[in-house]
Design a protein around this nucleic acid. Structure first.
Lengths: 239, 239
DNA sequence: AACTCCCATATCCTATAGGATTTATCGTGG
DNA sequence: CCACGATAAATCCTATAGGATATGGGAGTT
């Protein structure tokens, strides 16, 4: 499996991506798939052999991933998959996310004119991927099990939020949001959501857009607050 | 040549610090001293030779430092010191910090009883280091030039804020704050503050403590807001 | 039977070497 | 005098090897 020689040299492409970025993506995919149980040790040369590279880029990718909280390192002992988020940690995550996104909406409101087109595009992508997931679910009976199917939907959903955060014109807020994104994804992975969540999320996103279109200063904040409250409710519902 | 490349093994402590952590601290110190001009390239094996280690731990330390924003990496080109914060970036930083710390104060208010002792200790340390800096300034005439003298004061000041943020009992907020700390330090380094700022900061911190002691829910938030507004005012005053 | 000590294996951490790429310098032509 | 191209040095990126350390199992003792 995955025994590709990687075509390492002289690809002539505009990639400009070092090997460590590719390793980072591979490990991230591996973690988000949920195949690796939490607490299992991530051996460096094990990953190196598995990916067909040397330990050095693997080490760098793990260092980069350390700050996301998905892996934890113990000096001279190695890396291991971080334990799953407990109930109180989940509450903390939702709380921090709410704080951050509400502030972002406040700061994005003055730029509603330039924000709305991008937001509508992101919403369309979200709706489309939701349709696709629903179609897939109807075909395969239920529970597509393969997380890769939902991956596209999650990205579209998160992209909707990112568009708003980008409109806040504050790179530190954006940095914080990206720092939280991995945890948000992992939280949703653990919560085996059903098909109803899709409809509700899409509807709440639509209300956020409507709130922005109303040109009311407070409406978007309230719409986002309602949406995140719904997300929190649906998340703890699983636990 | 202030480096001790030897005798790092089996110190008996529970730290278990690998070499890459030491390199990280060394590079951080180097950057915060302000001796390295922004935009200058940080050669990997240059640092390796300078610190007396191999390139591998240097590389890992730089990867770890990449996410703080103090250094920027271009694939296949190397690392360089990040450009200094422009005026709008400074505004963004203060804005993000205000948002974060006000939220932290709100969440810390319910735990005032356990918070106050630690806060008073941190405040005492802050006052002490302020005295020390003032004494030093009176001796050396003015402008201690050596940033290392102010380093202790900055840490004490920031520790005061960290105590409050820790009391918020939200590890993601704390993570965000630590992510911002490097930028805050660098901002203060560029702003060559005078002795009056010390008194004002100490006074405002004391008012924050008084606000917590008043057992009023809103008072601490307002006190922190006033403090951060003062910090912003004194920062832009330099530009 | 339970505990301690010791050793073998696996892994991490650091150092060194080689291939690929970028940047600087120098010479030549317009 | 300026622009352009080729060569050379420096640097980055990756691979491999060796020393140091933690973990697991077995023998011996109480």
């Amino acid at each position: 499996m995955t025994t590709k020689p990687k075509a390492r040299t002289t690809t002539g492409s505009v990639d400009r991506r070092a090997l460590r970025d590719g390793v980072y993506d591979a490990v991230l995919e591996m973690l988000l798939d949920g195949t690796t149980p939490p607490g299992s040790s991530l051996g460096i040369d094990s990953l190196a052999r598995e990916l067909g590279v040397s330990p050095t880029p693997v080490r760098e990718a793990l260092v980069q991933m350390e700050h996301t909280g998905l892996v934890s390192r113990t000096a001279l002992k190695g890396y291991k998959v971080a334990p799953p988020l407990g109930p109180e940690q989940m509450t903390e995550l939702l709380d921090a996310r709410t704080m951050l996104e509400l502030s972002a909406v406040e700061r994005a409101a003055p730029h509603t004119e330039t924000l709305l087109p991008d937001l509508k595009i992101a919403h369309a992508e979200h709706v489309l991927s939701a349709h696709r997931v629903r179609r897939r679910q109807q075909q395969h009976g239920q529970a597509p099990k393969g997380y890769a199917d939902l991956r596209e939907y999650f990205n579209a959903d998160w992209e909707f939020h990112l568009v708003i955060i980008r409109a806040a014109r504050n790179r530190f807020l954006l940095q914080m949001a990206e720092s939280l994104s991995a945890h948000v994804h992992r939280l949703r992975q653990s919560a085996d959501l059903g098909v109803y969540d899709l409809d509700q999320a899409v509807a709440e996103h639509a209300e956020i857009i409507a709130a922005f279109e109303s040109r009311d200063e407070l409406a978007p904040v309230e719409a986002m607050r309602a949406h995140l409250a719904g997300v929190a409710e649906r998340s703890v519902e699983q636990a």
